[in-house]
Design a protein around this nucleic acid. Structure first.
Length: 455
RNA sequence: GGCGCGAUGGCAGAGUGGUUAUGCAGCGGCCUGCAAAGCCGUGGACGUCGGUUCGAUUCCGGCUCGCGCCUCCA
């Protein structure tokens, strides 16, 4: 029985889908004006894991992760680069897909681009206007009247009074309330035609928050099961989504809200604005993508995750232990859910996707496999790993990837060393081994011959 | 200032009202020509002060410290 920590109620709840056997899930994706950093990587990996576990549990899942391809920063960046919005966003969407694929993130079922749903956004705004939640401000922007929505603040645990007290002095041109947010931004003369759409409120473009309300509704309906995203989106983005979607439909919007924790650098949130971010592609130049995925999944999705070389090295060594246990087994992944390890794995995953505990089970399984050499355990280790998107490679491939010398070169030296060993010329044998070690190649003598792996 | 989250052994990171997390690193042993890998064993922990309890790292409260949101942000 799956339990999910619901940000809306701040408690662990039994998961019950709206439609039996079926899960509809929406996750806020990226604004594509730059390369994804590791924080974005975490969102993608975490909700990929969630989707995989839901499917492994027998649900049919429809997973939507949107792309924000129209926004202030995109416009600004395109102008700086002297390229069109379309060209810029296409470029970074392609890069995002490369990064996601490298991290073993399966493509979502739908990946809507905001610009393709502008008509849906306008429909939604029109309904909000009709229901009395939207108004045209003095500067011609269409705004959402926050005070009209009684449940505003429920998700973020903030009252309007608290928010007002804490809000920095903000020049809210024409807004009825400083906390009101923009649904439709009136076009400005200096903006390129590419970012102007005709609308009942004049030419302009959608506000950020309405995008997700429109896309989720278009693809998943007015009421769906799970909505996810980074913790920083809880307020105001997700709060605003609720206000918009429920204000328009008069129905509950989402049953379970999930928020993943931040990636940190030196105990500070990794973010564009702080400038302390590492892009996924930079990290992948130095670490195997599966090591990065393992590193992300080794922490609980709601906990902060500190990024550092030492932690990546640690993850690399740990993952190598798992692959080492698998060495020599070419089993087809197969899970016997009645087997003790598999049951523990399931229990962990059902407990709010406790991947650290699930991975601990994998290590116990590796230990049992090392002792017994039972191919069934190898099949299970690979099977359970597969649910997390791990351990699907040939173990030799993992253990040898990134070697500084060619296979033939290494094999030649191993042959030379084997000769030396036969002649009991230990000095020469050790010299060759040391030489390879200096090149990052570790030799291991086994009863059936010498094997190698990269350090 | 308001709201929220967290504080676990050298590092990372789960979990539990009384009994082993797990991984990396360390130490001892087995194996090995010696190693490596693996196996066996082992030391070392629950921020602080109170409370509840037969018993708390685990529940409750104060404090301290850290982080986040309150502004675009995954």
């Amino acid at each position: 029985m799956l339990k999910i920590y619901n940000s809306l109620t701040r408690s662990l709840e039994v998961f019950t889908p709206i439609e039996p056997g079926r899960v509809r899930m929406y996750v806020c994706g990226m604004t594509v004006y730059d390369y994804c950093h590791l924080g974005h990587g975490r969102v993608m990996v975490v909700f990929d894991m969630v989707k995989r576990w839901l499917e492994a549990s027998g649900y049919r899942v429809t997973y939507v992760r949107n792309i924000t391809d129209i926004d202030d920063k995109i416009i600004k960046r395109a102008q700086e680069n002297g390229e069109s919005i379309k060209k810029l966003t296409d470029r970074f969407i392609a890069a995002m897909h490369e990064d996601a694929a490298a991290l073993g993130v399966l493509p979502p079922d739908h990946e809507p681009r905001a610009t393709a749903y502008v008509d849906k956004m306008q429909e939604l705004i029109a309904r909000l206007e009709k229901n009395g939640y939207a108004y045209v401000a003095a500067n011609h922007d269409v705004c959402y009247a926050v005070r009209k929505f009684p449940r505003y603040g429920r998700l973020s645990g903030k009252s309007l009074e608290d928010l007002r007290a804490g809000s920095r002095v903000e020049i809210a041109e024409g807004k009825q309330d400083p906390l009101d947010f923009v649904l439709w931004k009136h076009a400005k003369a200096e903006e390129p035609d590419e970012v102007k759409w005709d609308s009942p409120w004049g030419p302009g473009r959608p506000g950020w928050h309405i995008e997700c309300s429109a896309m989720s509704q278009a693809l998943l309906g007015e009421h769906f099961d799970i909505h996810g995203g980074g913790q920083d989106l809880q307020f105001p983005h997700h709060e605003n989504e609720i206000a918009q979607s429920e204000g328009a439909s008069n129905k509950p919007f989402v049953n379970y809200w999930m928020h993943n924790g931040f990636v940190r650098v030196d105990d500070e949130k990794m973010s564009k604005s702080l400038g302390n971010f590492f892009t996924i592609r930079d990290v992948l130049k130095r670490y195997d993508a599966e090591v990065v995925r393992f590193f992300i999944l080794r922490a609980h999705y709601r906990s902060p995750l500190n990024y550092s070389d030492a932690h990546l090295e640690d993850a690399k060594a740990a993952l190598a232990r798992l692959y080492t246990a698998l060495k020599g087994f070419e089993a087809t992944p197969a899970i016997d859910w009645d087997e003790a390890h598999a049951r523990r794995f399931k229990e962990a995953m059902d407990d709010d996707f406790n991947t650290p505990e699930a991975i601990a089970v994998l290590f116990d399984l590796a230990n049992a496999l090392n002792r017994s050499k039972d191919p069934q355990l190898a099949a299970e280790l690979q099977g359970l790993g597969g649910i997390l998107g791990l351990l699907q490679r040939d173990s030799r491939q993992f253990l040898q990837a990134g070697a500084s010398l060619s296979e033939a070169d290494i094999m030649a030296r191993i042959a030379a060393r084997t000769q030396a060993k036969k002649a009991k010329n230990w000095a020469e044998a050790d010299r060759i081994r040391e030489e390879l070690k200096a090149a990052g190649i570790v030799l291991e003598d086994t009863p059936t011959g010498t094997t190698w792996r990269r350090a």
